[in-house]
């Protein structure tokens, strides 16, 4: 019991059995009973391909889903129940204790306000800072995210900045009110590779400095690998594998995770060989359909996979996988090798 209390105190975000559907003619389930938690200062990497529901999850936590979305389950954010919170309390939370950054800073920043003004606006809303004190804090924040000549840059408009600088400005805005949780939705996807590395470094250093937790959402395994303590892999609205980052990436337990990692060429690997592509594509069905949604693309599928949805089962060493075959000693990579011989 005592351990449970400890855990709850240290928990920044706890999502329990969250289901999200979008109503249009009929209800389409895009998240099916997703559970995850993030501790203080921890980074959870949420990986998956387009349409798997990872952004929907990030937005659900902030209650930023469109009006036709239905939500069921529980989201506990810093001890508060998000789904029953009134809109005023929710607005206090957004941009305050919980902040979000997006893939495209140009669509998240206001094009007709200077970046300095956009930061002071957040400070005025969530902290007592006004006037010169707010401006000074904005300049300090721009310096913190690695923008040179921050006092001058505070007077510039988003279009005057490069893509990487815009992303830094958005991060400055996000951290302006000392968030306990930062939701980063594909923050490096639109950037060049050398700039990506800079932004990932920046996020890592800010996280330590501010001891903030992070939900890092991306389709890019290598970006996730460089920031996450734990990783959750999503496929068609469900988490299919979860565990500490390094073991999961080195030794994936779910055939989908394994397939994703195998399908990218390595910069020091063999050239002009066949890549191990995952056959087919994600089916458009509802996330709560019976059976394993990865089954049509899976090389290991058995009869049971078509009729029963596997649970996200403990496979030891703090890891979990949603696969009937996964166990402490079954791994798709080894199974594929023994099938080949």
């Amino acid at each position: 019991m005592e351990r449970r209390d400890d855990r709850e105190r240290d928990e920044v975000l706890a999502v329990e059995d969250l289901s999200v559907g979008f109503v249009q003619d009929e209800t389409r389930t895009v998240l099916a009973r997703v559970s995850l938690s993030i501790g203080r200062g921890e980074t959870l990497g949420l990986v998956g391909e387009s349409g798997c529901g990872k952004s929907t999850l990030g937005r659900a936590v902030m209650r930023l889903l469109p009006a036709n979305a239905t939500m069921d389950g529980r989201i506990r954010l810093l001890g508060a129940d998000v789904l029953s919170m009134d809109e005023r309390a929710m607005r206090r939370l957004r941009g305050g204790a919980v902040a979000m950054i997006f893939q495209n800073p140009m669509s998240a920043l206001n094009p007709v306000l200077t970046i300095g003004r956009q930061i002071t606006e957040a400070l005025e809303t969530h902290t007592g800072l006004r006037g010169r004190a707010a401006t000074a804090r904005a300049v300090e924040l721009l310096h913190m995210v690695g923008i040179s000549r921050p006092a001058d840059r505070a007077h510039e408009y988003p279009h005057q900045l490069s893509g990487g600088m815009r992303q830094r400005a958005m991060i400055a805005m996000a951290i302006s009110c000392d968030p306990k949780l930062l939701i980063a939705d594909e923050p490096t996807t639109a950037l060049d590779v050398t700039v990506q590395a800079q932004i990932l470094d920046l996020l890592a250093s800010l996280q330590e400095k501010l001891s903030m937790a992070m939900l890092f959402i991306s389709h890019d395994m290598s970006a996730v690998a460089s920031v996450a303590d734990r990783i959750a892999v999503m496929y068609a609205g469900r988490i299919v594998e979860e565990g500490a980052a390094a073991p999961l990436l080195r030794d994936p337990a779910h055939p989908y995770t394994s397939g994703l990692l195998n399908s990218v060429p390595h910069v020091d690997g063999a050239r002009r060989t066949r890549l191990q592509a995952i056959p087919g594509s994600v089916s458009a069905g509802s996330a709560d359909a019976a059976g394993c949604s990865f089954r049509p693309r899976c090389g290991f599928a058995i009869a049971r996979c078509a009729v029963e949805t596997p649970p996200l089962a403990d496979i030891g060493a703090g890891r979990a996988a949603r696969c009937w075959l996964a166990s402490a000693d079954w791994r798709p990579a080894a199974a594929a090798r023994s099938m080949a011989t």
């Binding site: 980074t43 590779v193 050398t194 990506q196 590395a197 990932l200 470094d201 890592a204 250093s205 996280q207 330590e208 400095k209 395994m221 290598s222 970006a223 996730v224 690998a225 460089s226 920031v227 996450a228 303590d229 980052a245 390094a246 990436l249 080195r250 990692l261 990218v264 390595h266 910069v267 020091d268």
Partner: peptide
């Protein structure tokens, strides 16, 4: 700048 997921570890701040 190319990172291989299998060998990448969390970046040090």
């Amino acid at each position: 700048a190319v990172r291989d997921p299998a060998t990448t570890v969390k970046r040090r701040p």
